[in-house]
């Protein structure tokens, strides 16, 4: 049984651990008893679970209004997409582009990329491992920018409170959208990129 070394998180003791751990066994440091992890624990499961949850929330996030704008008695509810269309139609195509990229494109791409990475890991693919790792890096770094939309809504709600003249309220959609962003970020964090390389080294 081939072994490799693992470092205890707490007492920094180097320990010999099996290269391929059994899925139902946990390793502990022989000196201090802290749990040892060769890879992120439950990485695959966690990523899948969080991705599924974010996919479920993705629907209400895009179909429920994220803002309710009242202006002199008239109330207008906007979803993310209707906001993009509104800005595009009124000529502010650059704002429309920013919102579209940050709020629609990025979460969707992130979910798709994570699904692709999970599938490739599941199938023990060894193709283009470097590219996949780069994809993961990019995904992880841009994920947080999706929160821009949530912050915009938060600032608008805080600033535009002019009583009966005008007001902005957060719609239920923003809650789900925030959920999607947070869950995909967690999913990206839960994914252990070393899984990409595990099989390759085995070979």
């Amino acid at each position: 049984m081939s072994r490799t070394l693992a470092l205890c998180h707490i007492c920094r003791l180097s320990t010999a651990v099996p290269i391929r751990g059994e899925s139902d066994s946990a390793l502990f440091c022989p000196r201090c008893g802290t749990g040892l992890h060769r890879r992120k624990p439950y990485s695959f499961q966690r990523t899948v679970a969080l991705l599924i949850a974010s996919l479920v929330l993705y629907l209400p996030a895009n179909f429920l209004p994220i803002t309710k704008t009242s202006y002199l008695g008239g109330v207008q509810s906007d979803t993310i997409m209707s906001g993009v269309i509104y800005f595009a139609q009124t000529g502010s195509w650059h704002i429309a582009l920013i919102i579209f990229v940050a709020s629609i494109l990025v979460p969707a791409v992130k979910i798709l990329v994570l699904i692709y990475l999970l599938l490739s890991v599941h199938q023990s693919s060894s193709n283009r491992a470097v590219d996949r790792t780069r994809l993961y890096r990019i995904t992880r770094s841009i994920g947080r920018w999706s929160m821009v939309d949530v912050f915009v809504v938060a600032i608008l709600v805080a600033l535009v409170q002019l009583g009966p003249i005008a007001g902005v309220e957060a719609g239920p959609g923003v809650l789900y959208f925030g959920g999607v962003v947070v869950l995909t970020m967690f999913a990206a964090e839960a994914f252990d990129p070393r899984l990409i390389w595990d099989r390759k080294e085995d070979v």
Binding site: T15, D24, S25, L27, P30, G33, A190
Partner: peptide, 16 residues
């Protein structure tokens, strides 16, 4: 190197 202790654990994560 001292060998790590091995205990049993759940196959499934609570994250589900």
């Amino acid at each position: 190197y001292p060998a790590a202790e091995v205990r049993r654990k759940s196959r499934f994560s609570l994250v589900w």
